[in-house]
Amino acid sequence: MKRGGLAIFLLLFALWPAAHFALVRTYDVDPWKLGGWAMYCVPGPMKTVRVVGIKQDGELERLEYWRYTAEEKWLADRFRELRRALGELRSPERLAQGMFELHGDWEGAVIAVLTFELDPETAHLRTREALSTWWRDGRREPYELPADFHARLYARP
């Protein structure tokens, strides 16, 4: 009984890192976390999160990290931390909902997650962006981004 249990446990333990690798590749899960034994394989995940509110009149309001209120900072930091560990398994939905509670004049929010990673081919740093739009009423429609959206999103102050 105990021998069989040990054998099954060891089999699962042996197979988990393969599943972990698949999660890393498919969902951008952090290789350093979740027991896949892939520490010191790639640089630790580098992600930045930007939040842009869509007001009722269609005006966009970009939240500046250095001007976050304590509540905004907690929400954004918590999301970034969990997104770093769990990748796309962690949806920005809760961050958007939290922001709607803090900003009563927002109809929607665009959340951008920018990932910096080391390109194995060129050995240079490259970026990947994941944009998602969230609406207060729960609908899932994309927002038509203005032409200068990215310039405004990543503009330095």
Binding site: L10, W37, A38, C41
Partner: peptide, 25 residues
């Protein structure tokens, strides 16, 4: 077995992620 498996996967993951061949990591 745990010692063997952790060591094996630590090496295999470095191989799979591909940032050791030319020392990038």
């Amino acid at each position: 077995w745990l010692a063997v498996l952790v060591f094996f996967w630590a090496g295999a993951q470095k191989l799979l992620h591909g940032l050791y061949f030319r020392g990038e990591f």
